[in-house]
Nucleic acid binder design. Sequence first.
RNA 1: GGCCCAUUGGUCAAGCGGUUAAGACACCGCCCUUUCACGGCGGCUACAGGGGUUCGAAUCCCCUAUGGGUCACCA
Length: 554
Amino acid sequence: MNQNKQLADLLFPHIEKTPDYYEAKYPQRQLPEGAKVTRFAPSPTGYLHTGALYAAMIPERLAHQSGGVFFLRIEDTDKKRELEGGVMEIINSLKSFDVVFDEGMTGENSENGIYGPYKQSERKEIYQAIAKVLVEKGLAYPCFCSEEDLNEIRAKQEESKQNPGYYGQYAKHRNASFDEVKAELEAGKGFVLRLKSPGKPENRIVIDDLIKGIVEMPENDQDIVLLKSDGIPTYHFAHAVDDHLMRTTHVIRGDEWLSSAPIHVQLFEMLGWEKPRFAHVSPVLKMDGTSKRKLSKRKDPEAAVSYYHEVGYPAESVREYLLNLINSNYEEWRMANPTAPNTEFAVDLSKMGTSGALFDLVKLTDISKDRVALMSADEVYDMTLQWAQQYDAELAEQMKSNEAYTRAILGIERGVEKPRKDIAKWSDVRGYLGYFYDSWFEEYTKEGYEFPGNLPNDDVIAVLDAYKNTYNKADDKDTWFERAKTAAEKLGFARDAKTYKKDKESYKGHIGDFMSVIRVAISGRKNTPDLYELLDIMGEERLKARFDKAIKSI
RNA sequence: GGCCCAUUGGUCAAGCGGUUAAGACACCGCCCUUUCACGGCGGCUACAGGGGUUCGAAUCCCCUAUGGGUCACCA
C-alpha cells in the first residue's frame, strides 16, 4: 500500500492537486429536474462531416429541449491527426445549421464556461491527478513495453489463438515492484500508464443504452492504456475524466464506441463515479451500388457539410431532413405543424432507429421544396442573393440590376394556398428564372425551340402571329384566357382538353398545345410558372420581341 | 477469428404476441384544372431463410445467411 503511494509520487512528482480539488472546482450543476447535460466532442481533424452534423444535432436538441446545457469539447489528444483551424471550422459549420453551444470552445484558443479547459490538450494536469490516485490505490501501473514487445506478445497470442492484448499473464509489468519500476525509470525508459483491470471476460456486464437498449457484453479484462508515454490520456480515460468533471449526464456518440463501453463502465466504477447515460448513434449510410456503406468524405460530395452551402440548400431544409432521419415521426409532426420552427419538435432517443439510415438526396430535395415553397418572395430573393454572391456572381449581378423584376418573378404563385415547388436549392433559381433576363434568354434558345411535337411549323407561326395581336395587357385573367381560347379555336384548336379528347380528328390540338407554343416562345422551356402572371410581369414589349424572335427562328 | 449490433416494399420507416402490416419519398396511372404547376384519388412492391415457443409470431427463443462496428500509446 505504502509502496503504491511511493510509486505514485515517483511517477507523478509534480502533481500536487487531488481529485477532491477538482471535485470542488467543478461542482454539480444546478439545473432543473430532468435537464440533460450533453456534449459534442470532435477531434479537429478536418472539415465537418454530414455524419458529424447529424451526431451533433442529437445532443444539442436533447440538452436544449430539456433546459440543460450543451457544450463543445475538443478532443485533440492525437497530435498527429490534428489540423490547423479545425476548431473554428467545426464551430462555424455547426453554427450555420443552428447548432450552437452554451459552453465550451468558442475559437481556436478561447472558450467559455467554468468546467474548462474544454480542450483536452490543456487538461493534462487533471488527467494526471486522477491517474496518480489510481496508482496510489494500486489500480494502475506503469508499463515499459516497447512496440516490439507488444508485437511479440500479440504474435504469440495469435499463434495460440488467444485473445490479443495486454492482460492477465501477458501483462508483464502488472506486478512489478517499486524497485523494478525505479530501475527502469533510472535507465531512462518511458512508460505508459495502464489500468490494472479487475475484469474477467467470463463475467457479463449490462449496458442500458438509450438507443440500442439492453446490451450484454463481457467485462473488460484488458489493461488498457490510460496515459500515453507523452502523459496525454487515451480517449477512454479522457472520456471518463472529462464527462465526470464536466458533469455530463448523457453521452451521445457514434456506435463505434459501443464495443468499448465496457471499458468506460469499468473506469467509472473504479473511479467511484456515477455513470452517465449512454446513447450510441448509428452512422449515416450511403448506397454504393447494391450495398450500403458509411458516408465517405472521399467518395461522396454530400458528406462534407459545405456541400449544402455550395449548392444552396437552405440550412433549415438540411436540418429538417436530418431531424427526419433522427426520428421518423418528425414527418408527421411537420404535417401537423407546417409553420412551426423545427426546434419545437421533441427529439426522442427511444424512437431512433438502431440501424444506420441511408442518406437520400431525393428526399432532402423534396423536403426542401416544401420549405422553400412556404417562404415569401422576399425571403427567397434575399437568401438566393446571399448565396449567389458567393457562388454565382453572374446571377447575383442579374438579380441586383433587375431587382424589382426579379422579386416580382419570385412572387408568382407564392404565398397562396398551394404554392409552387420549383425550388429546392438556391442553385435551382438560375434555371427557374434565368430566361426572364433578356441578356440570358439567348442561352435558352440557342439550340432552337422545342415546340410541342407534331405541330407543323406553319401552325406554330400562326399561333404566335395570332396571339401577338390578341394579347392585351389590360385584360384580367379570365378575359385573357377567354381571348386566348377564342384565338385558339379560330386556328383549329379545341377550347378545352375534353372536347379534344372526344374528337381528336377534328382538331390540331387543344388549348394546352396552343398555350405551350406561347410558353416555349416566350421562355424557351416547356415548364414555367403561371403564364398569365408571367406575361404580365414580362410586359408586352418583351413579349412581342420574343415572339418575333421565335418566328424568325423557324 | 472473438465480441457486439443490425436485417419490414427502390428509400426513410411505423409496429413491442391477435393490424386488411401505417405513413412519407420515388415510380406508374387516373382525376381536377383555363396553360405550367399545386393538389386529390388509386396502383406498385415488404416482415432475409430455417427451425422452435404459443390457440396465435414481423413481434419471443435458437440456428444460418448477409451487412455493419470493434478488437492501437487513433479518436
